[in-house]
Design a protein around this nucleic acid. Structure first.
Length: 467
RNA sequence: GGUGGGGUGGCCGAGCGGCUGAAGGCGCCGGUCUUGAAAACCGGUAGGCCCGUCAGGGUCUCGCGGGUUCGAAUCCCGCCCCCACCGCCA
């Protein structure tokens, strides 16, 4: 959520931000409502102040009058009673007026709140302007010794690659038919070494963050209240991407939603808390099952393990002080961990600076990491895919946008202990089974077997290959 | 599913119609003492919003919403959430 004060001070920044992100939100309407609400608040508050003043004055007088009435009689009593009624009536009249303004405010707020939630975080000035993912900018690439993604796989490895679908089938690693039978399209069952490899990847990535980089391991709920989805910034914009459990329709207390990323649980952890500055930054890692409806992706990536409704993801999150430089440093570091991980798995990758149109509402900046998948992309002359980079990671920098919604603050020493919203960042560490695509395709051998990357072997009972 | 008990400041916890935005404790900050530190003692310390250049002022908030009352953390009604025990069960 953006800061309304900042919006008032510099509406153009937010108008431009929304424009660059391609988000349509009526900022003028928002400003007008805000103005109206504040005017009503000012009125209400001064009336309320007057009411309270009268009440304070009248209290003792009422007590005294009531005493006098008891011992008075006749005309004296009547006049005292009139005075009492008068005194009692004055604050009541004000109360009515106060309530009128309160009603005005109550009428404005729902629309205002709805609009505020829609205003996106303006992209940082150094984020390239663009309409969609097409205009993302490559920052750098890496590939292991002896492999060149710009040339055919065969020229580096001496044979034509199979796609991950073929490898899964030939090595018996996945059963799509039965997955679909049970759960519909985009479902799958990893079998045998397929499942084992999946677990190995997750566990390796998880241990990598905990043991090597000191992140605190946390489990997270994957079924959460709507509030949690809103406060972490996924709703309202991403509402149709989440599975919705309508408990309320069965007489339950409230609906629930399945989370599409561990980020929800990790960020929700400290909602409404004032954190100790000395405890920052918080570095959390989790592994959780992620659920995505993939609404609007009908017909896209329907085959294989690329786009599926349920997967598992190791996710890293950092919550730090509200300092741009510190935030940016963490972003770099968190991307660095992933690069280190991909290098250890010998998967070629590239870093993409996402352009403004591809950022999503909450991000000021986002770097995607795409892994090289030899079995992806358009077909070449031989009718076989020529390979392509595809997104496996996404590193977001959000400033205080998310923490403002979450009401997650700390006392900032520098500004004399002022409560300040934290900054937050998140990045994938590893998402599987998607990562199995480059793992299998890059490590396939001419004989059809797959060599298991060295770091995964301890998690595969020491095995060196599949098949 | 049944029956009870609760939701109060950064945390714990008292209050159960006005003097309570809230005792006491912990934590934190400042000071005294000390060569230094600890201990002890003294003092300070809620958050949001609005107005204001500042100083400052106002208002809201004791789970949420409504009501009673001149006046509500305290009484009444509705809702949400949490906990304990029993039953069922991974």
């Amino acid at each position: 959520m953006i800061d309304l004060k900042q919006l008032r001070d510099d509406p153009e920044r937010f108008r431009e931000g929304a424009r660059r992100k391609g988000v349509d939100v009526d900022i003028d309407r928002l400003l007008a409502l805000d103005e109206k609400r504040r005017a009503a608040m000012t009125e209400r508050e001064s009336l309320r102040a007057e009411q309270r003043r009268l009440e304070k004055e009248a209290g003792p007088r009422i007590g005294a009058l009531m005493k006098e009435i008891k011992s008075a009689d006749g005309a004296k009593k009547a006049s005292l009673e009139a005075e009492l009624a008068d005194i009692r009536g004055a604050p009541a009249k004000l109360k009515e007026q106060v309530q009128a303004f309160e009603q005005q405010i109550a009428e404005i707020e729902p629309e205002l709140n709805e609009l505020v939630l829609q205003v996106p975080m303006p992209p940082d000035p150094d984020v390239p302007v663009g309409a969609s993912a097409e205009e993302n900018v490559e920052i750098r690439t890496w590939s292991p010794e002896g492999f060149d993604p710009s040339k055919p796989f065969e020229s580096s490895r001496g044979f034509k690659p199979k796609t991950h679908l073929e490898l899964l089938r030939d090595l018996g690693l996945c059963d799509f038919e039965r997955g679909v039978k049970m759960a519909g399209s985009r479902s799958y069952v990893l079998t045998g070494d397929g499942f084992r490899l999946h677990q190995a990847c997750l566990r390796y990535a998880f241990d990598f963050m905990v043991d090597k980089h000191g992140f605190a391991p946390m489990s997270v709920p994957v079924i959460v209240r709507e509030e949690c989805m809103v406060n972490t910034g996924f709703f309202p914009a991403g509402r149709d991407q989440a599975y919705h459990i309508e408990e309320s329709r069965r007489g339950g207390g409230h609906d629930l939603f399945l989370t599409g990323t561990g980020e929800v649980g990790l960020m929700g952890l400290h909602q409404d808390e004032i954190l100790d500055e000395s405890k920052l930054p918080l570095q959390y890692v989790t592994v959780s099952t992620c659920f995505r409806r993939e609404a609007g992706a009908a017909g896209k990536d329907t085959a294989g393990l690329f786009r599926i409704h349920q997967f598992d993801k190791v996710e890293q999150v950092v919550i730090c002080r509200a300092d741009e430089e510190e935030s940016r440093d963490w972003h770099t570091k968190m991307i660095g961990y992933v690069e280190e991980l991909l290098k250890s798995l010998e998967i070629p990758y590239r870093l993409l600076q996402c352009c403004t149109g591809d950022l999503g509402v909450k991000n000021a900046d986002m770097i995607d990491i795409e892994s090289w998948m030899p079995g992806r992309g358009p077909n070449g002359e031989d009718g076989r895919p020529v390979g392509a980079y595809a997104e496996t990671h996404s590193a977001s920098r959000l400033y205080d946008f998310q923490c403002r919604r979450l009401n997650m603050r700390y006392r900032d020493e520098k500004s004399g202990g002022a409560t300040t919203f934290c900054h937050s960042l998140n990045n994938t560490v590893l998402a599987s089974p998607r990562i199995l695509i480059p793992v299998l395709e890059m490590h396939q051998q001419e004989d059809g077997s797959v060599k298991i990357p060295a770091p995964l072997r301890p998690y595969m009972g020491g095995a060196e290959r599949i098949g």
